[in-house]
Amino acid sequence: MNEILLAAAGLIVAAVAVGLARILRGPADVDRLMAVQLLGTGGIAALLLTAYATAVPGVDDVALGLALLAAFATMAFLNHLDAGEGGAEL
């Protein structure tokens, strides 16, 4: 069963890694940001799966921290769009 959890984690990491191509391609900053956010969510999923498969203590708190900050960079980015600093470049 643990191997299946790890395989699932691997698939998710692979998927979001492919998704990172959006950071490369853009075209807009928002698209790149979405790729980062997908990576964040996928990272949390992979983290939880690995933690349950390998029993490293304390990983659920790392996941909590990541989840708490999932939208942190996005918020900062949107703040600057709303402030009218570069909204046109969207």
Binding site: V36, L39, A73
Partner: peptide
Amino acid sequence: ASVLGYVAYGLLLALVWVRLHAPDIGL
């Protein structure tokens, strides 16, 4: 784009730290 790449990189590092049995550092 480079800045966003770095943010993604930071997220990934947290996973690496967990794999090194360092959840304190991962956090």
